[in-house]
């Protein structure tokens, strides 16, 4: 074969092999590391898998933050307006973490539908709500409206 053609062929073969390998690996690793977001209602209805890292969040329920007296263990409830999810965490909470504000936790569910969080994120400026939480609240709100409407219809 002509040397230039041979060089080209080598390059093409190399690229094909490498890119298919890479594509396979990327798909596999994405599957392993994609953390799905669940709303508190979804978690409590058992839609979220156990022992796999997931993200869950909502508004922190007023008065639900409980600090341990001798360590940095903390627990709190987040809500989407329909259901409350309990989250355990050990460590320092972010500056803008507060009751009545949005928070997203990353962690694993244990047997009792409680999230053992390895990380807690709060919003980072006053006007910002994470899109996941905003969506979850809206879904829950729509659902409530629908239920109210239906119950009114039923009464009639």
């Amino acid at each position: 074969m002509h040397p230039i053609r041979k060089q080209r062929l080598q390059i093409v073969v190399l690229i094909v092999i490498a890119s298919s390998l890479a594509a396979g690996l990327i798909v596999y690793m994405l599957g392993q590391n994609a953390n799905y977001f669940f709303t508190p209602s979804q978690v409590l209805q058992g839609e979220a898998p156990k022992n796999i890292t997931i993200r869950a969040g909502g508004m922190v329920v007023d008065g639900s933050i409980e600090r341990s007296s001798d360590s940095l263990d903390v627990s709190f409830l987040v809500t989407d307006g329909l259901a409350d999810l309990k989250i355990y965490y050990s460590g320092i909470l972010p500056d803008l973490f507060a009751e009545g504000e949005a928070a997203i936790a990353t962690g694993k569910l244990d047997g009792d539908k409680v999230l053992q969080a390895s990380q807690v994120l709060a919003k980072h400026d006053e006007n910002y709500t994470p899109p996941e939480v905003a969506d979850a609240m809206k879904q829950a709100y729509d659902l409530k409206q629908q239920e109210q409407y239906q119950s009114q219809e039923a009464k009639k």
């Binding site: 690996l25 990327i26 690793m29 994405l30 590391n33 994609a34 953390n35 799905y36 977001f37 996941e132």
Partner: peptide, 20 residues
């Protein structure tokens, strides 16, 4: 893409990036 295709709300964790 997953969000647009309604595959769920996903975030890709650091292990993915570090692995490559």
């Amino acid at each position: 893409v997953a969000d647009v295709l309604e595959l769920g709300k996903i975030s890709v964790g650091p292990p993915y990036f570090n692995f490559f």
